[in-house]
């Protein structure tokens, strides 16, 4: 167990890198996901097709391939993902501004991948709103945007919280893959460096790394269970 105590700062730093990565990826995924969800329910057919193609492709593609794409296709497009070096934000999230682009590449891959699931969660929330609500809104003469803004989306939000939460938990777990794609120093990369390069015994390292992830996922899961139970009562 000495390994845990002696390398505490490695675990702590790994935890914070993973946490930063997850916060950024969740923000990105929510933004892209909402856009895609709006596209999928818009009255303009090409946007709808674009939205559903996006969801179908990303949902059925392993994250590993998406990561490979970010790592190979973005440089081929001539981009180092420098648009993510947002001034101010890279002061808080230091990794955004590094010269090595892997953090940004992995971030893009995870956001883009998760966005498909976010869009599905939002859409399932919208579908969960009884159709009488939207019909009533139309009957009193609200337009499509008004209908969405004042009637459907506020109610859809309620139904979307639980699926969105499970998407976020899945995203936190998927973030472990970033450590295997050149993102140095996050929890999973620390797992490799401590066991293979550091030569530390494997069980304590496993416990430390696991604790790092469980601190993130288990409370979220319990919170989600609570919300779900309360909603079941409210219904």
């Amino acid at each position: 167990m000495d390994v845990l105590v002696n390398n505490f700062d490695v675990f702590r730093n790994g935890f914070f890198v993973t946490l930063q990565f997850c916060i950024l990826a969740a923000t990105g995924a929510l933004i892209i996901g909402v856009l895609v969800a709006v596209m999928r329910i818009s009255p303009v057919p090409p946007l709808r097709w674009l939205g559903s193609t996006y969801v179908t492709v990303l949902r059925n593609c392993p994250l590993t391939i998406v990561m490979f794409f970010a790592a190979f296709a973005l440089p081929a497009l001539g981009s180092n993902a420098d648009f993510l070096r947002i001034p101010g934000l890279d002061q808080i999230f230091k990794r955004l501004g590094t010269d090595l682009p892997y953090f940004r590449f992995a971030l893009i891959a995870l956001s883009v991948y998760t966005a498909a699931f976010v869009a599905e969660a939002i859409r399932s929330g919208v579908n969960g709103v009884p159709s009488g609500q939207a019909e009533a809104a139309r009957a009193i003469g609200l337009t499509f945007t008004q209908n969405l803004r004042y009637v459907v989306l506020p109610q859809a939000w309620k139904g979307a919280v639980v699926p969105l939460g499970s998407v976020l938990i899945a995203m936190i777990k998927n973030s472990a893959l970033a450590g295997f794609f050149g993102v140095a120093g996050d929890l999973s990369a620390s797992a490799q460096s401590l066991t293979s390069a550091g030569g530390f015994p494997i069980i304590p390292v496993f416990i430390g790394i696991s604790l790092g992830y469980l601190i993130l996922t288990v409370p979220l899961g319990l919170l989600l269970d609570r919300v779900e139970r309360r909603q079941a009562v409210a219904r």
């Binding site: 777990k173 472990a176 893959l177 999973s188 066991t195 494997i202 069980i203 496993f206 996922t217 899961g221």
Partner: peptide
């Protein structure tokens, strides 16, 4: 709870590198 909360990558990685050690 533990194995549902762990990333599957980590589970696979430690299965592959931990079990031979044990």
């Amino acid at each position: 709870e533990v194995f549902r909360g762990l990333p599957v990558v980590i589970t696979i990685f430690f299965c592959a590198s931990g079990l031979p050690v044990l």
